[in-house]
Amino acid sequence: MPIDKISDLKTVYELHKAMEENQVIIAYEGEFTSNITQSVLSLAEKNLDQKLDKGQTKRRAFNIAVECLQNISTHSDRNEDFPNSIFIIGQEGNEFYISSGNTIKASKVENLQRKLEQINNLDSDGLKQLHMQAIKESMKRQESNNAGLGLISIARKSGKKLDYQFVPVDQDNSFFSFQATFFKQEESL
């Protein structure tokens, strides 16, 4: 559905309604500089504190939010045509989702897809092993690329399969949509 210009007040209402219907807790769309990432994270934390109290679920949620946001700012391939990324936290009953979307070079899709498939094929013990192996390897190579580790960490905190999708936006670029979900646990007293 094509959306009217934002200057049309109807669009403001439509967006507001869409976000309410999807129980969006926080959504940011735009450029992700490190200052902005920190502000979004701070806002995300305040909202998670409100929704989840300060227990284990909140800690896991916050960890996922950190890695998602840092994946965006570290790994998206921004350019003039696609400067923006998106970050969303939402809730459906006891289920929470943390989503990100950003443009990456089409040439990176295959490798990223392979990593995600590998992660989704493992149970929690398998993820632990993969995490240990990945951290040892990253030490050896001293590379700054943490994508593998970040995704493994998200999968471990989430305890569920990672959802993702790649949509080609032009010949050289794809839009990478990513979502981690988790359930609010009943905190034991």
């Binding site: 800690r59 916050f62 960890n63 890695e67 840092q70 951290i135 990253s138 030490m139 580790l149």
Partner: peptide, 17 residues
């Protein structure tokens, strides 16, 4: 620590080593 990110876990491992 109550929270650390994956980038920090590499630093911690490096430091402890």
């Amino acid at each position: 620590l109550e929270y650390f990110n994956t980038a920090t876990s590499k630093v911690l491992l490096n430091m402890l080593t």
